[in-house]
Amino acid sequence: MITKQIRKWLVSGFLTLAVATTASAQTFVFTAIPDEDETKLVERFRGIADYLSEQLEVDVRYIPVKSYAAAISAFRNNQVQLAWFGGLSGVQARALVPGSEALAQGVEDQAFYNYFIAHKSTGLERADELPEGVRGKTFTFGSKGSTSGRLIPEYHIRDRFNEAPETVFSRVGFSGNHTRTLRLVESGTYDVGALNYKVWEKELEDGNINTDDVKIIWKTPGFPNYQWTIRGDVDERFGEGFKDRVRQALLDLDDPALLESFPREGFIPASNDDYEPIRSVASELGIID
């Protein structure tokens, strides 16, 4: 009786393992950094999955992750083969996966920029440089691994004040993502925050920002940001020329609804070298070795 139970148990164990292995052996899986509200991401990338699946004629699946690092790890561990990364996460991921390359970026990602925003109670106004008045206020980044939520803002804060953010501000937090940064500054939880201009403009357009409560106080200079990055070994797994087909599919993407969900005007080719400025800033700040 006992041996029978053990056998059943083992069989069931193997079955689950087997199911897990076959289910995704020939599925092309991609992920994206969780830089915005998850509902939006799921909606947007399910659309992309359907589009790619149609174009590439393979099963394509999107998996949502909870952190930038999880996206990088999944890419590195070959559990996803393609990812929509930010500037920094892309640099980190490509450094960890030899042969991987930046395939395409949004038109706007060539010269992306950030807004520093402030709650009305601070009395801060928009200026040509980061106002001195932010000193002593509370400040929130986005995610720890974010380019526009962390790397670029920190670079400019250090550049402007010659001090670490922790000494410039009375309290420094990490909201988690750009939408959250916007909400926290809008509600006054933090005095000041920095976020991706795209998120700001999309939320503004959708009427989701109370501009009486929160306003832009500074716009950063441009930097290269988001891009699609693919592993170098996809051709071996999905057939010769697969990488080029993925690139072409992305460049050809012209469904206005899908593009609007990013929001990007369209995608253009990108290369690893485009992100050298990000790499050097990250290395300067000690975020990468």
Partner: peptide, 18 residues
């Protein structure tokens, strides 16, 4: 206990090199 392993979800295959 017999049923539980079936409900853990599929996840992704383990790559032992990792």
């Amino acid at each position: 206990l017999l049923a539980a392993p079936f409900f853990l979800g599929e996840g992704f295959p383990i790559v032992w090199g990792n």
